[in-house]
Design a protein around this nucleic acid. Structure first.
Length: 274
DNA sequence: CAGGAGGAATGAC
DNA sequence: GTCATTCCTCCTG
């Protein structure tokens, strides 16, 4: 397989796998992951990890050059000890000492990876809508544009009036419950999508080219939840973990994802890009 | 029973 | 033609 082909993932991503290059790819991507699947190509890889509340765990098993906050990450001493980032803080991570602050930092790192997948989509949306990429900078008009765009893209009911007169900064401090109170139909979904935008903005600020050659072992903490999120992202309500895992396995022969040397349930590993 | 592996059909692009 | 999804069977722990 040609190396160029090898890093192109087509799992939709408009997400995980944007357009054709996915999961996850673009200029920003190139800044972070300069080599394929660097952003455009890399993007696909992380598309799957669109767990807006991080139902999975992701570990940076190794980095060519540690990122700025790498010292905050727990490292696996062996393949079977992946730090687990649980969604909603439902329990300590296996393989860690369970310290909450460490988990929180893990969560941040997961978000960083997750967001890579959608950076290009966000860029495209920003250009089309003429809005800033960082939701905090949005005016109430920008918020309405974003709502219309998201509703259209994901076929959600129109709820713009429920968020009338809210600026981006107002939106960003709202909890998921507050989103639900304003829209019982799709408040949770909008909250999840806004979270992705916020994470993308965060990432743009903090990511550096040193993230280059990263590979990662990740563990899916809540397979049903991850599948649900993936289904939301792909607009596939019938998505389940069986289907999601089949998609993941399609990447085996492409040399993009593999099972770690010490195989464990729900644990996968990105193949180190050549 | 849940997860892993992979074949085959299907539809979108 | 490629890719992701869907459905399926079989295997494993």
């Amino acid at each position: 397989m040609a190396s160029s082909d090898r890093h192109h993932v087509y799992m939709d991503y408009p997400a995980f796998c944007h357009s054709q290059v996915v999961p996850w790819i673009a200029e920003e991507h190139a800044k972070v992951f300069p080599s394929p699947p660097s952003m455009p190509e890399c993007r696909s890889r992380f598309d799957m990890f669109l767990a807006e509340d991080s139902a999975w765990l992701v570990q940076r098993a190794e980095t060519a050059t540690p990122p700025a906050r790498d010292e905050d990450l727990p490292h696996c001493k062996e393949a079977g000890q992946c730090p687990v980032i649980d969604s909603g803080g439902r329990g300590p991570c296996p393989g860690t000492n369970g310290q909450v602050d460490v988990e929180d930092r893990c969560l941040e790192q997961v978000h960083t990876l997750v967001v890579e997948e959608v950076l290009k989509d966000i860029e495209t949306a920003c250009k089309l809508l003429n809005i800033p990429p960082d939701p905090v900078e949005w005016s109430s008009g920008h918020v309405q544009k974003w709502l219309l765009w998201t509703e259209h893209l994901y076929r959600l009911p129109q709820v713009g009036r429920a968020f009338q007169d809210l600026s981006g900064s107002n939106l960003c401090v709202m909890s998921e419950d507050e989103f639900r109170q304003r829209s019982s139909q799709c408040g949770d979904v909008l909250y999840a999508h806004l979270d992705i935008w916020k994470s993308a903005a965060w990432m743009k600020e903090r990511c550096s080219p040193e993230a280059h050659c990263f590979i990662g072992i990740f563990k899916i903490e809540d397979s049903a939840h991850v599948a649900k999120l993936w289904g939301i992202r792909k607009n596939r309500p019938a998505m389940n973990y069986d289907k999601l895992s089949r998609s993941i396995r399609q990447y085996y022969k492409k040399g993009i994802i593999k099972k770690p040397d010490v195989s464990q349930r729900l644990v996968y590993q990105f193949v180190h890009p050549v």
